[in-house]
Amino acid sequence: MKHLLSTRDLSLEQAVTILDTTARMAATQEREMKKLPTLRGRTVVNLFFEDSTRTRISFETAAKRLSADVINFSAKGSSVSKGESLKDTALTLKAMGADAVVVRHHASGAANFLAQPGLVDVPVINAGDGTHQHPTQALLDAFTIRRHLADPLNPACGGPLPPFDSGLGTDLAGRRIAIVGDVLHSRVARSNVALLATLGAQVTLVAPPTLVPVGVETWPCEVSYDFTRTLRTWQPDAVMMLRVQRERMSASGGGFFPSPAEYSRQYGLDAQRLGLLPDHAIVLHPGPMNRGLEISAQAADSDRSVIVEQVGNGVAVRMAVLYLLLASDQVAGSSSTLS
């Protein structure tokens, strides 16, 4: 694998390799001296056409912990109509000698565009393209889920966190994961459905019918319109809440749902629904959260919540991906697993 554009491109072996490498990276981050020399002298460009401070900082931290030089290229508002084309931006980055490009763009397929031969010609990491994919988010989610659910007897609530290498070498076979919210517009949902299926998990999407894409029937998952029933009867091991953007309410045709209050009543993770989860189940959210809309404060702050931990794991996942794409040739054996 030369790029990381979509979780659909990952084989089971590749996905497990990334998760295992993430565990190794995360372990190094427990040390007082967090910085590794691996990518010294290499330059990683963060090319962000969309505001996303947290994702950019996460990639920046990951690259710096690997000793890479980081250039942040914020091109917000840039478009063909008013400014430089994506092609010219790509050629500029190539001329500057970037060794990897991390791209966030509002257009689906933008990362694929950059990855075509003759443009940047270095590894491209998709940091979110339109409503298509956000593969490192799905990988960090999968890593977090694996860590917590490797030993089902280990309750999520309270107690010390499981070790990073919990579940090392394993997939998520048989785990039940509910993904709840705006699936239609969510690259996080698309990335997770593909990756979790590859890892052997069972996935149920929970959303109002207006926020489920036409064509979902071919996805490797189930679809539910009833959150409470899914929690009660399916007993998921993990619940992943998606961010619901408030502007979805005022979209064309009167919006995708009638009101925030109704959305919250039907699809929010409130204290009552939280109580329906099995003891070991965890709650994820890619952030930033809308407290009181898709997730209540009780759920966000509960012992089940791994939301803050996801952020830390995000750095480790991005370190792993940068390492595998840029430095795997330095490590015997690794190149074959990610090529």
């Binding site: 659909r8 689906s108 397929g109 393209d129 339109g130 409503t131 298509h132 994919q133 690259r187 698309r190 894409p213 036409v214 064509g215 979902v216 029937e217 071919t218 996805w219």
Partner: peptide, 13 residues
């Protein structure tokens, strides 16, 4: 076209 492919690749249908 809105359908299986658009759902998967995230282009508005």
């Amino acid at each position: 076209n809105e359908g299986v492919v658009s759902a998967e690749i995230g282009l508005a249908g």
